[in-house]
Amino acid sequence: MWITDAIRRFAQRGGRAIEIGPGSGIYIPRLKEIFSEVYVADCERIYLEPIEKRHANDAAIHIVLDDITASGLPDKHFDLVLCTEVVEHIPDSRAALLHIARILKPEGILVLSTPQRYSFLELTARVALSKWLIWFTRLVYREPVMEMGHINVMTATTVQAQLAAAGLRIIARHKGGLYLPGVAEFLGTFGQRLAARLEPLIRNTWLDGILWTQYYIADRLRIQNCRSPREGS
């Protein structure tokens, strides 16, 4: 997985990491392999409770209720910030990235991923989960189908501009995840193999906007040129 490889490649052992919006917490064990302290933050207590119970006896895990768009986390505090599949759920991703830059140490690293606005999966989901067709989608899948909650799906150009505006410099990037409507649902293993073969042919071409996810590694070497979100206007 690209995220796990990126953490291992760019992170320095020891120090302090934080994951913003941990979901089920699948990256926490990976972060613990590298960092002495691992913070887990979310703006909703309900998402933190299962992780808090699972790691109740682990003094290296710190659970924090915090809204990254108006964060109370301390300046220059973390060696690594992990924010994967989160900013698409946040209306003000600019504020989120400004605070992420602020809480990173000068030599800190951000690992970020978010869907692409015009990926086949996002476009298909907008149609299939629309109020006119969601009944049909549930019929096809024969199981509950929920809306994705993606309210801020950005193009690569927009994400890169927001990173730059936050004073973050991209040092590595990647795009991946080819979803082919119909093929994924009805062609089984053959469909998966077909998508796996086509994905590297599409990546780094003018067509790579159809891949589902964009990934970035960024540092804050230029943050001194940008205003902190805590400063007045």
Rank of each mutant, 00 (worst) to 15 (best):
H174F: 12
A172S: 15
L178R: 02
Q192P: 02
T158I: 15
P200S: 12
F190V: 09
A166I: 08
R203N: 05
E199M: 13
L194A: 07
I202Y: 05
A164V: 08
R173V: 01
W206A: 11
P200Y: 09
R193D: 13
H174T: 07
L201Q: 15
Y179P: 00
V159I: 15
E199R: 08
E199P: 03
L180Q: 04
Q192T: 08
G167V: 03
F186S: 11
G176Q: 12
G177Q: 06
G177V: 02
R203K: 14
T189C: 09
L180M: 09
A196M: 06
I202P: 00
A166W: 00
A165F: 10
R173W: 13
A196K: 12
P181Y: 05
F190P: 03
P181S: 14
L163G: 00
R203D: 03
L187F: 11
R193G: 13
K175M: 14
A196S: 12
I202Q: 04
E199K: 04
E185N: 12
V183K: 00
G191T: 01
G167Q: 06
K175D: 10
L201P: 03
L180A: 05
A196N: 11
V183S: 00
W206Y: 12
L168R: 01
A164D: 15
T158M: 13
E199W: 07
Q192C: 08
A161P: 08
L180E: 02
Y179D: 00
T189N: 10
G188D: 04
R169Y: 11
Q160L: 07
L201E: 12
T189V: 12
K175W: 12
A172C: 09
L201I: 10
V159E: 00
A164E: 11
I202M: 07
N204H: 14
A166P: 00
V183R: 03
L187Q: 06
L198N: 06
N204L: 10
I202E: 00
G177H: 05
P181R: 11
Q192E: 10
A166E: 02
F186A: 12
Q162P: 00
A184N: 12
I170F: 04
A195T: 02
A196H: 13
A164F: 13
L180R: 04
L168Y: 06
Q162W: 06
L168V: 05
A172P: 04
L163H: 01
R169W: 10
F186E: 07
L168H: 01
Q192F: 03
Q160E: 15
L178Q: 02
R173S: 14
L198G: 05
L178V: 04
A195Y: 01
F190T: 15
Q192K: 14
G182Q: 09
G167C: 10
I170H: 03
V159G: 00
L163A: 06
N204K: 13
R203T: 10
A184R: 01
A164Q: 12
I170T: 09
P200Q: 11
L178C: 05
E199L: 05
I171L: 11
R193M: 07
A172M: 09
R173F: 07
L180P: 00
W206E: 10
G167L: 05
I171P: 08
H174C: 15
T158K: 08
R173H: 14
A196V: 04
G167D: 04
G191I: 00
T189G: 08
I202R: 01
A172N: 11
R173Y: 14
A195R: 01
Q192W: 02
F186T: 15
Q160M: 09
A164L: 09
I170E: 02
G176I: 06
L168E: 00
A196C: 09
P181V: 07
I171E: 15
R169H: 07
P200V: 14
